[in-house]
Design a protein around this nucleic acid. Structure first.
Lengths: 183, 183
DNA sequence: TGCGCATGAGACGAATTTGTCTCACGTGGT
DNA sequence: ACCACGTGAGACAAATTCGTCTCATGCGCA
């Protein structure tokens, strides 16, 4: 009977990813609930977006924890991270397009912490000699976000099979498109 | 006296990239014109977005032409493409987030043609042995869009120097993050 | 059966945005 | 000097969306 808050948020993210200017009524219908109920759980559009941000933030933190970025090679850690972050890809695809969250320098500090943890992984890989040093850790972090968003969108649109999600991202990010004659 | 239509569109794209829900009044002010004038040139919000799409489409076609994708190695052609597409990056960064354009299967056929040309480049690279075949051409195309958008945003936000734009994208897309002991 | 509770549906005014209009101003060309 | 034209500023109603409210329904539970 009671509404599943997380499920509503996921449906809302999917709807808002498809159409960023969706009406609250459209969001509610996409979540299978009425506008009144949506409004009972989230005070307004801002509150809804904030909740989406918090959920995405939480899932990213969990993915970062589960990936154990400090263990093993940086490459393997990155592969684990991409695999762990897959459930949050839909949410991230929306959040990265929601530049409104970054307006006014009051960006949620949580993202800085996540960025730092990712950049730290790339830095570790660079220091160990696994990753090239001519690509900045900031760019690699942004590129990871961009590829996750692109992959999520490609999957939603049927151009990439869902099962290939993490493979496609990890291989491109780590190895690039270039064919290497000797592995 | 007369308004520079393309300049207005670029300013509008920048404003809408920053805040997708910008008012027409905000868009107009960002372009340095009044709402009345904006409305004289573009019938409404839809018409404005359509014009932005057409401009982005045109610039992509021009970039594809200028890159001469059929000449030389696929790698070099891809590097040329990325360099040529840089001026349109801001526009693309907005358009890729404007999923509204893809609603209802009435997507502008022009994008299909562009996608095809890009996919053809990757296919050529795969057939020549330059690119790996385990990453589909559709994914490589989407990844290119995603990286261009991510890079445009990173530059706008000051995390990546504008002069590194094409290098960062090309190197990551072609060579990946992995360090290769022998070049 | 009867109660509690969350929800769905809809109405209502307020706020915002939009589309259209008018009018005055400034510039460029005749 | 005069006119044509594009523009800025603002007013105005229409349309849309939002926030809040009320009421009825359905389900679980005692």
């Amino acid at each position: 009977m009671s509404v599943d808050r997380d499920q509503v948020l996921r449906s809302a993210a999917a709807q808002l990813t498809r159409k960023g200017s969706s009406t609250l009524d459209e969001v509610a219908k996409a979540s299978g609930i009425s506008r009144a109920t949506l409004h009972r759980h989230f005070a307004g559009r801002d509150a809804l977006v904030r909740a989406l941000e918090d959920l995405g933030l939480k899932e990213c933190e969990l993915a970062l924890d589960a990936a154990r970025l400090g263990e093993g090679s940086a490459q393997d850690a990155l592969r684990r991270l991409i695999k762990e972050i897959e459930p949050a890809a839909g949410l991230l695809a929306f959040l990265v397009t929601e530049n409104q969250l970054f307006e006014g320098d009051d960006r949620h500090e949580g993202w800085s912490r996540i960025d730092d943890r990712m950049a730290e992984l790339f830095r570790r890989g660079q220091e160990s000699g696994e990753f090239r040093i001519d690509l900045s850790t900031a760019w690699l972090t942004d590129a990871l976000y961009g590829l996750v968003g692109a992959a999520a969108w490609a999957v939603l649109d049927g151009r990439v099979a869902a099962k290939d999600f993490s493979y496609m991202i990890a291989e491109l990010l780590i190895g690039g498109a270039q064919r290497r004659v000797e592995s």
